[in-house]
């Protein structure tokens, strides 16, 4: 009896990390070049943007909420940065600042809708998602933004994506091998560490977890529940806009068609994070590992020549397994939503 319960404890705690190690071994043996530094960097780069968005969702999950608008915020930031530089011909710095403000403002509105207008979180952020998906296409009448495009008033857009801006998405730092580490990966690591520190080591993070677990108790213990909830959505919106900026910098144009998978991939990463180390709750480390896991899986499958259309299926399977780890095995029930 005791042995089996130890075994289950062990499985809950390390099961997911073991699964990830096993995947790396399997891919390493079967796909040539999988274990090279370039492959590792490619994986990191592929998950950098979803990882950053997932860290934002994690903040809203911590307070017991959910943010469905992150994908739309990211693509809005993509379009906005392109518009600012190409049409308005402003600087890269201006584009970044406006995008971050836009993300924070959307988060603020989400938070107010949920806290003040008492709209359920899923519905409020779903509404915001539709609103943004439409809004980002209005200025260009639905077309992508690139240098030289014709504007609705007949003139031609003369602005360009500045080299400094493009660097954010394309530059690689020298690490062991020259030109190895993409800047976007550095952003992911830095943001993951910051979010982790905020949630685990500061009293604000502690209170946000308390709110997510029992908002009434947190409120009666003197926490300003509404303010923390709004802050969580503002963090989410801001991080989503960071993701959008990096996407714009990588693409070099305001592409209306990109970013379709951002929402689902980042939500999956955050939910997979529940299972890492048996946390049974949203957490920054788990989210980062969750994003990495999805990246490893997809890179490995690609290198083993699995057809592209199996990828979503595999992602779904991983998510379901992670949720089983979190909810069924650990019997504690967890508290995830969505």
């Amino acid at each position: 009896m005791k042995d089996t319960s130890h075994l289950i404890d062990f499985a809950i705690k390390y099961g997911f990390l073991l699964l990830m190690a096993a995947l790396i071994v399997v891919f390493g043996l079967n796909a040539e070049g999988f274990l090279s530094p370039f492959s590792a960097v490619f994986i990191l780069q592929s998950v950098a943007i979803t990882g950053i968005l997932a860290l934002g969702v994690t903040a809203t999950l911590v307070v017991g909420g959910f943010d469905l608008s992150i994908g739309a915020v990211a693509t809005s930031a993509l379009m906005l940065s392109a518009y600012v530089m190409v049409v308005w011909e402003m600087s890269a710095g201006m584009a970044v600042v406006l995008c971050l403000l836009m993300g924070a403002a959307v988060g603020l509105v989400n938070g107010l809708l949920i806290v003040k207008a008492r709209i359920p979180d899923l519905l409020a952020t779903l509404g915001m998602m539709f609103l943004l998906v439409g809004l980002q296409r209005i200025p260009t009448e639905g077309r992508s933004i690139s240098t030289g495009m014709a504007l609705p008033d007949g003139s031609t857009a003369a602005g360009i994506f500045s080299p400094g801006f493009l660097m954010l998405g394309r530059h690689r730092l020298d690490l062991i091998v020259p030109d190895l580490l993409p800047l976007s990966v550095v952003f992911l690591v830095v943001i993951a560490v910051l979010v982790w520190v905020f949630l685990e080591l500061t009293r604000h993070g502690r209170l946000m977890y308390a709110i997510g677990s029992n908002a009434q108790a947190a409120s009666l213990a003197g926490a300003n529940v509404n303010r923390y909830k709004i802050a969580a959505y503002m963090i989410s919106g801001t991080l989503a806009s960071v993701g959008g900026i990096l996407l714009a910098a990588r693409l070099g144009r305001g592409d209306v068609a990109s970013g379709n998978n951002l929402l689902l991939d980042s939500v999956a990463a955050a939910l997979i994070g529940f299972a890492v180390l048996g946390a049974s709750k949203p957490n920054a480390f788990g989210t980062a590992i969750g994003a990495l896991f999805v990246g490893i899986l997809l890179q490995g499958l690609t290198m083993m020549n699995a057809p592209y259309y199996t990828q979503d299926f595999i992602k779904g399977g991983v998510l379901v397994i992670a949720l089983v780890f979190t909810f069924a095995l650990s019997g504690r029930g967890g508290r995830g939503r969505g």
Binding site: T202, R203, H204, R206, Y209, N214, L220, A221, G222, R335
Partner: peptide, 29 residues
């Protein structure tokens, strides 16, 4: 269970909840 217990927290964190500011400096716990 409705108004006080934070079910996800351990005993220590439940105990320090209202006065958490006393256990932190510059917001760091």
């Amino acid at each position: 269970l409705i108004n006080a217990v934070v079910a996800d927290f351990d005993i220590t964190r439940n105990l320090t909840l209202p006065f958490i500011a006393r256990h932190s400096r510059l917001s760091f716990l």
